[in-house]
């Protein structure tokens, strides 16, 4: 269905933009210089595999089954016929308030650089605080893409678990540079 692609395009844009982005905190005073106030303010939470995923087999199960993994699994192969890098058992929950998304014109401020810049940018206003609940994943090497493939062997390298609040202040300003 096409609207899925549209949303994917937006998410894809956000994913690829850091390479051409700059961080800058914008005060309310600077905001008052902004022409136009379009855009949206997002709040909410995102959870990944809170109770497990849709696969039920010898490897994947619900989070109540201690012998199985209930998180998501990302495997990618860098070399033809080589092994697979794996982010395994990806789980967790993120909560935030005040992620903003809009287009603004910068023609002032920034120590005088704004007047020289004088362009439109996509501004991703970061939420002040992002709350992490049981965010975890395991980095591993695997002989196959799937745990269910014949000859599957996997070595877990390390695991990470995150809990608590992360301060994310400022704005992500995204604008095109270079030759399109």
């Amino acid at each position: 269905m096409q609207q899925g692609w549209i949303i994917a395009a937006i998410l894809g844009l956000v994913m690829v933009t850091p390479a051409t982005a700059e961080m800058a905190r914008l005060s309310d005073g600077d905001l008052s210089d902004v022409a136009g106030q379009g855009g949206i303010y997002l709040s909410g939470d995102v959870s990944i595999n809170e109770n497990g995923g849709p696969i039920q087999n010898a490897y994947f199960g619900t989070c109540d089954e201690g012998s199985k993994r209930c998180g998501a699994r990302l495997a990618f192969q860098l070399k033809a016929n080589g092994g697979w890098m794996v982010l395994d058992d990806i789980r967790g929950k993120f909560s935030f308030q005040g992620l903003t998304l809009r287009v603004r014109n910068i023609d002032s401020g920034f120590g005088g650089d704004g007047a020289v810049f004088n362009r439109d940018v996509l501004e991703v206003g970061l939420p002040n605080t992002v709350r992490y609940d049981d965010v975890q994943f395991t980095l591993a090497n695997s002989s196959t893409a799937r745990p269910s493939d014949p000859g599957f062997q996997q070595t877990d390298v390390f695991s990470i678990e995150m809990q608590g609040d992360v301060v994310l202040e400022g704005n992500l300003l995204v604008f095109p540079t270079g030759n399109p």
Partner: peptide, 17 residues
């Protein structure tokens, strides 16, 4: 690339600026 067993839930509220 193979991504398996994914289940994402989100509660998002979007208000105009």
């Amino acid at each position: 690339v193979k991504l398996q067993n994914m289940d994402i839930k989100a509660n998002l509220t979007a208000t105009p600026i």
